[in-house]
Design a protein around this nucleic acid. Structure first.
Lengths: 338, 338
DNA sequence: TGAGATTGCGGGAACGTTTTCATCGAGGGA
DNA sequence: TCCCTCGATGAAAACGTTCCCGCAATCTCA
């Protein structure tokens, strides 16, 4: 049914080996012959069978990306960027959703692991041992999770948080509230508290809660009780919940209270008022994570062949840190003068 | 390196054929033997190599889904639901993004077509001829696109639009504006105009524009000029643009103007005020499209073998229609009494 | 000009599975 | 008791590639 390399070979009057070479190692075949093969392939509409290719041992040409929840607006831009990047490098991306549950995550990984050359695991909930086990089977890059010996992309919110503190301080705020739902990337580096206290800003912490819209709704009513004039929320979604409830309570944003989100998702840019937020660049994450994974795959493939070459960069573990920055919009403003 | 069927076979003391059968046709092997094989496989951590499987001709076990833009908040829930459904049926889903450009779409399809058993093409921009060509190569299901002879899932907004008209009419609105960006699914069935005029509602049409936030911002300023008291927007994103600009103009929603979106994305449920919108159930689409594709794949595989059996359901084309309904929230209310 | 190096290509094994066909033993009807 | 059937298993081909070898022809250099 489908046209195979053999069809192309006989159409071009060469052997299958030569056709294979014409595609995978163009400089090993004479220009004239190659052209003849390419013409024949084009006329027949030939494209190599990836299954056969990967069976032979050439890898699948596919990168796996496992995220906690595709429906979380933070992830789609990352998926998109990683696809674009991978495509340019001749790879495909297989995205899967672990549904934030450990059992599902394991099942998901099992389902895709044989179809990919490597895996980007986002905020995995798996134990260190299990992750090490997976990383033994195939190249893995962790995002927002640290396991010694496994390459990692870390998102640092320090810069963004520090800028947020400066921003609020400059607007004259003194008492702030942080609506927390335990972000892994906040636990590392300078804490939110440190950043705020360094600027003589008091910071009350609410939670930890679930990172949902309703959490923001709930938290909004507590803010007044704290006498705070600024709220920084776990993410944009929670911040929108705060905005929503503030409006319902007749509290004006930003005149009475300022609100800051995290992630700079689409949500933040289309809310009313526009949400001041801490941006994490999805494109940067996608590109760095993708490149790191490809690099790891390459190292594994190359390093496995030579024996005993454990020294140097061969067994080295990649590490990349992604920064963040404040995007001021309309949800923050001068603190009320009283 | 990886454990193969041969390892399992020798561990269980049987031939590879029997191991293969133990997995793919469990009732063709004695219960005792099967258990022995399953134990051995579990102990060795064996899982079949999908590449080898599909090379042999068993299909890839993967469904392709090509959407115009993954970052559009309408799609992630669909992707998620389709993944979940497919997983339960023992398939994997490969999602790709055509970036709304025809050249990219063709390239995307080429990149994934050899890796999947069939394709769900969402709102394809390709010509009928090209789509027919693709559908000849592999099973295809079209969503929001009609080409005779190709299975199709159609989204009907008629019910939702009619309910929106009733809703506005009951609130006493008489003059409405429709911000249009040309939705394929509106061109079919009863038009928006018909639905509104049937209830004696005047409907002015703006556009067509691009379906972006800024479009809503732009359109909002025109609404007042029309003396309209209600706006229905191309989708939730555009509706949010309207909301945003209304707030800036000091026009209250819903006291002065009512706003309705389409899609019921996350955006609608977290906006302030909550956005009244026309819901299209992502789960239903995903399940129906996925099932239709699987059915088409099955028919192709089974029907291709027997010669001349073109009559009956063999060459039949599946067709599924998905409904819609109004979700009233806080962005609609009684028309101002003048 | 002849020996070795290089270049261009063909032959064939190997990848891991499924599936057809053959084999072997047991059970059943005559 | 013999033949036939049937059920369980094994042997081997086939799927479409890639890549290691081997072979011939051309090239390089003394």
């Amino acid at each position: 049914m489908a046209v195979t390399i053999r069809d192309v070979a006989s159409a071009a009057g060469v052997s299958v080996s030569t056709v294979s070479r014409a595609f995978t190692a163009p400089d090993q075949v004479q220009a004239r012959t190659r052209q003849r093969i390419l013409d024949a392939a084009a006329k027949l509409g030939y494209s190599p069978n990836p299954a056969a290719r990967s069976l032979r041992g050439g890898g699948t040409g596919t990168l796996g990306l496992i995220v906690p929840d595709i429906a979380n607006p933070f992830f789609p831009p990352i998926v998109k960027a990683m696809q674009a990047r991978a495509r340019r490098l001749g790879h495909t991306v297989l995205v899967a959703d672990s549904d934030e549950r450990e059992a599902d995550e394991l099942e998901t990984i099992a389902a895709v692991s044989r179809r990919v050359d490597g895996l980007v695991l986002w905020a995995s909930t798996l134990s260190e041992d299990r992750l090490r086990g997976i990383a033994e089977q195939l190249p893995v890059v962790l995002v927002n999770r640290h396991v010694p010996g496994i390459p990692e992309v870390r998102i640092s919110l320090s810069a963004g948080i520090a800028q947020a503190a400066e921003h609020l301080r400059a607007y004259g705020h003194r008492r702030c509230v942080f609506v927390n739902a335990s972000r892994e990337e906040l636990r590392r580096g300078k804490s939110v508290h440190e950043s705020f206290e360094a600027l003589d800003l008091s910071l009350a912490e609410l939670g930890p809660y679930e990172p949902r819209f309703e959490t923001g709704v709930h938290a909004a009513t507590l803010v007044a009780a704290h006498g705070a004039t600024a709220v920084i929320a776990h993410n944009d979604l929670v911040a929108l919940g705060v905005l929503h409830q503030m409006a319902k309570l007749g509290i004006r944003v930003p005149q009475d209270v300022s609100v800051i989100g995290i992630d700079d998702t689409l949500l933040a840019s289309v809310s009313t008022p526009g949400l001041t937020t801490i941006r994490i660049d999805p494109e940067e994450i996608a590109v760095r994570a993708g490149d790191l994974l490809i690099e790891t795959i390459g190292a594994r493939a190359g390093g496995a062949g030579s024996s005993g070459r454990t020294s140097g960069a061969g067994g080295g573990t990649g590490f990349v840190e992604i920064g963040s920055r404040l995007i001021p919009r309309a949800s923050t403003g001068p603190a009320p003068t009283h």
